[in-house]
Design a protein around this nucleic acid. Structure first.
Lengths: 227, 227
DNA sequence: ATCATTGTGATTGGATGCAATGACGTCTAT
DNA sequence: ATAGACGTCATTGCATCCAATCACAATGAT
């Protein structure tokens, strides 16, 4: 009956809920679904050409990840972070990302480092906030791509996802060109990694995150009322 | 028709999947479901007096937590950790638990510290491995109970859950009385917390976890073939 | 006029049913 | 005898269906 269902023709490969979750995740990341947005099961189901069952599983998945807040018999909303909570995520990142870099660094190829360098350069030149954020994320994720970890990699990705909104809000607030120090840090990370100085790179990453945390803390207006 | 269903009489408060997840979690923690066990949806559904829908949501939840491994069109198994993966979890704990203690410590009451002391003493006296593990967990969780965190507390609890099996296997392997150093560390944690030396306590916790990690690494026979 | 109350509609939670996939055993051909 | 192909069965994935709960508005009482 439904035409939308025909577009997703019975793949039955167990990927429906995963596809829905990925779609919602992306919509949140892109700012299409800002924090506090209501998520109606039926609406989502229609959008992705699925029934409500995989949608519910996707929402569950996103809830555990912290991206979505579920209330029984009431509904689902895109999670909002207070400033305090955002700082918690950043402090967690400060501890985990240096560790993840230790896992990843030994397996990064020269090509990977070149690509990181290119991303850092592109960031310094772009004017577009969205592009800036995309490149930044890609830079760091590439630096972590060598680590074949059980959960650490996924965990860090989740932490990035939950704070993406506030990073965007902040970046849109300040001048992109005022972020010169970001580029210096990125170049320094690549340089130390080239030298095989993993500890140094990890230290820079930690400082990089800490500095960003403090920048965010200086702009409480980004956050929800109860900051 | 099913009698089991009558025992869970239509609470409809959205807690079915959560109850199922909690039940499976506990069964895994208690060793009733060892790593590698197959989890059949229908079987679980009957056991908890629910239909397969909440069971699937529970399995999804446990998969994200890392306790269960889901394979599309095939089934669900209790996750197995290699030694390398277990070490990753422990390294993650080494970084996160000191941070969590920083959140918690300022809100711990004198009563909490007394209770921790009592738990540490009880641990030193028990002969039972299961009791030993229960007390150990309670001791640490109590030390973290003051932290009103968004995700850090849950995260740490999850990390404990995924490695519980291997802690038990290790504890059963060695003599309980050989763990004197554990008790010293626990007393030291309580003492430093009483002094208000959070940094010192955090440092001890970090060392405590690191030492345990190395103890586990010395017993590769605990782990699954691909260690 | 304000507050409590009741009823209606929208939306979620959970149960059942059916199609599809995968595993396993059996049969056949070389 | 062994390897490959086929068919059956158990089990999962998803859609549909029904009941319970909640939000909100309209009504009535103080």
């Amino acid at each position: 009956m439904s035409t939308a269902r025909q577009l997703a023709p019975a793949t039955r490969d167990g990927s429906a809920s995963r596809r829905v979750a990925a779609g919602i995740r992306e919509a949140i990341a892109h700012g299409e679904l800002p924090p506090g947005s209501r998520l109606r099961q039926e609406e989502i189901a229609e959008r992705f050409g699925a029934s409500r069952v995989p949608v519910r599983e996707a929402l569950k998945e996103l809830e555990i990840e912290g991206l979505v807040t579920l209330v029984a018999n009431s509904g689902a909303w895109v999670s909002q972070l207070t400033m305090r909570e955002c700082e918690e995520v950043y402090q967690t990142r400060e501890r985990l990302e240096p560790l993840l870099l230790h896992y990843s660094a030994p397996h990064l190829s020269a090509d990977d480092l070149d690509a990181m360098d290119a991303l850092a350069r592109a960031m310094a030149e772009t004017e577009d906030v969205v592009e800036f954020l995309r490149l930044d994320r890609e830079f760091h994720m590439l630096s972590y791509s060598g680590g074949e970890t059980l959960m650490l990699g996924d965990l860090v990705r989740r932490l990035w996802n939950t704070t993406q909104q506030y990073r965007r809000a902040y970046t849109m607030l300040v001048d992109v060109h005022a972020q010169r120090i970001v580029h210096d840090e990125h170049r320094h990370i690549v340089a130390t990694l080239r030298d095989g100085d993993v500890e140094g790179a990890a230290h820079t990453v930690e400082g990089h995150i800490r500095r960003t945390r403090r920048m965010l803390a200086a702009h409480p207006e980004i956050f929800t009322p109860t900051g």
